[in-house]
Write a protein that binds this DNA or RNA. Structure first.
Lengths: 115, 115
DNA sequence: GGGTCATACAACCTTATGGTTGTATCAATG
DNA sequence: CATTGATACAACCATAAGGTTGTATGACCC
């Protein structure tokens, strides 16, 4: 049922999923949460099955989920995976800024005191 | 000097680069900006050449840069690529919140996604 | 139940990716 | 300038990824 169990720890899958332009676009479209796979597939110059595979990749990465609605399955973007990736990038950037801080310290003060 | 030329548009490469655990780890280590490739390579259970390739992938993605220092080349994390990816994720999340807004408008009951 | 719309999945092909080893370049040093 | 240390790059191999077509399941409509 609810797919959000081990979600956030499959960082590999999240980034790999986002590494494809078609999939990123699907994530954007699926934000509306109104289209079935066929409708999504119609927008891309590839087969239905190909798009289906892309959606499957996104689903495994926890970036979208599918919900039955009549004979269709509506694809909907799941915010949790996005946040996980985002937090990771923020962490990287934070550490990097820390490094700049330290370097600036050395240049201007010539001493190594951690504030 | 400044290496940021076409930076932010290689989103595919940025995400693909970050989709590998070894490479993410290298990005973290390279934040210190003090190790050469050989030193980095020593930390991983794979050949020097393999690590070298990983660094090359990160470099092509604009996530790290190499700087000569004597006979070594020091690997240093570049913040620009990280920011680009982060901004993209933020944009996704923002749009998703917009969707929540719209859904809140339709506080009727459980089904019907069409309006 | 038969037809049809929407999705799932298997088999297959081609190219990319992650790893290996081996060889070449390049900079410091004796 | 020969040697050594550090990096670059080519050739190769195994597996994964992105695409195709074809077939099977599932849900609705008559």
């Amino acid at each position: 049922m609810v797919v959000s169990m081990e979600t956030a720890l499959d960082i590999d899958r999240v980034f790999a999923a986002l590494a494809d332009a078609t999939r990123r676009d699907i994530v954007l479209r699926a934000i509306a949460g109104e289209e079935g796979i066929a409708e999504i597939a119609n927008r891309y110059p590839m087969s239905f099955a190909a798009v289906q595979k892309h959606v499957a990749v996104l689903e495994r990465a926890g970036l979208v989920s599918k919900q039955r609605n009549g004979r269709r399955k509506v694809v909907r973007t799941d915010v949790e995976g996005l946040r996980a990736a985002q937090r990771l990038l923020e962490r990287y950037e934070h550490l990097w800024r820390g490094r700049i801080d330290r370097m600036t310290h050395l240049v201007t003060n010539s001493k190594e005191t951690d504030e």
